[in-house]
Amino acid sequence: MAVVETDPTDPRAAPDMAVAKPQGYWSGVMSRLVRDPVTMLCAGVVLALILAAIFAPFLGLGDPYKGSMIARLKPLGTAGHILGTDEQGRDMLVRLIYGGRLTLFIGLVPVVLAFFIGSALGITAGYVGGLTNTLIMRTVDVFFAFPSVLLAIAISGALGAGITNSLVSLTIVFVPPITRVAEAVTSGVRKLDYIDAARATGASAWTVIRVHVIGNVLSPIFVYASSLTSVCMILAAGLSFLGIGVRPPEPEWGLMLNTLRSAIYVNPWLSALPGVMIFVTSLCLNLLSDGLRSAMNVRD
């Protein structure tokens, strides 16, 4: 057998690579994430909020619905009410923690649902092309005619107030942009030679999509979707603020912002608190999605 030169001097095959390191893609992503302090901090904050939201009933907090007519609008730092009390004398700390439950739930669930629906639609449209693409994408385009806030308000308004209806309307709002991103990245990947090479092996369309398309399109779609969570949370809060989302007396950040609005001249710091929570959470979610984006880039 003829000797074939194997690039012995190739630097990319330098000694450190002499031993194959069977590190998978996701462990590589994790190790890059761990080395990024900002992303880790944001992940910590988001995780803490989620944990606090899940385990709120077990934290030994007071009742978020129990008010006191004599202890209304107490300022921050009041004994027994570290973050003060709201316009009905309910403890702000307890309500903010319980409020996180609803807000995060309504902020995350529609994006997760939209991520699955939009990815499926977009990947199908991008890979199959032709008439299927036209049908899916033109339908999606119709939704783009309306600003997302208006669309959410319109759908929620039509369905009526309530948590389920909020979830439905927000999911509908986020499917089109995710579909569009998914279609764009998929049709980009579809043109690449390795897709042709895979088709040339006789693989079915589903196998090609599963092995060669999904892995390469999912992370940009995922990163994009994660950047929508903050928008979704703000929209959810906005719906509650307008009274077509969560109804009082449920603790929800947007709704709290609304009800405390009237107290802004009495106790401005207090009324800013739900806003601060929304701001911090959405900032952390955005930075987290940026961090994910760079960690998921294999090339670096």
């Binding site: 390795y194 040339a200 092995v211 892995g215």
Partner: peptide, 23 residues
């Protein structure tokens, strides 16, 4: 088509696009 692809294969011009970056 499947039989044809058992008998015929293709090598593309080298570029990043010829190999799935995730595999």
């Amino acid at each position: 088509l499947k039989d044809l692809r058992r008998g015929v294969q293709m090598v593309f011009q080298d570029s990043y696009a010829t190999l799935n970056p995730r595999l």
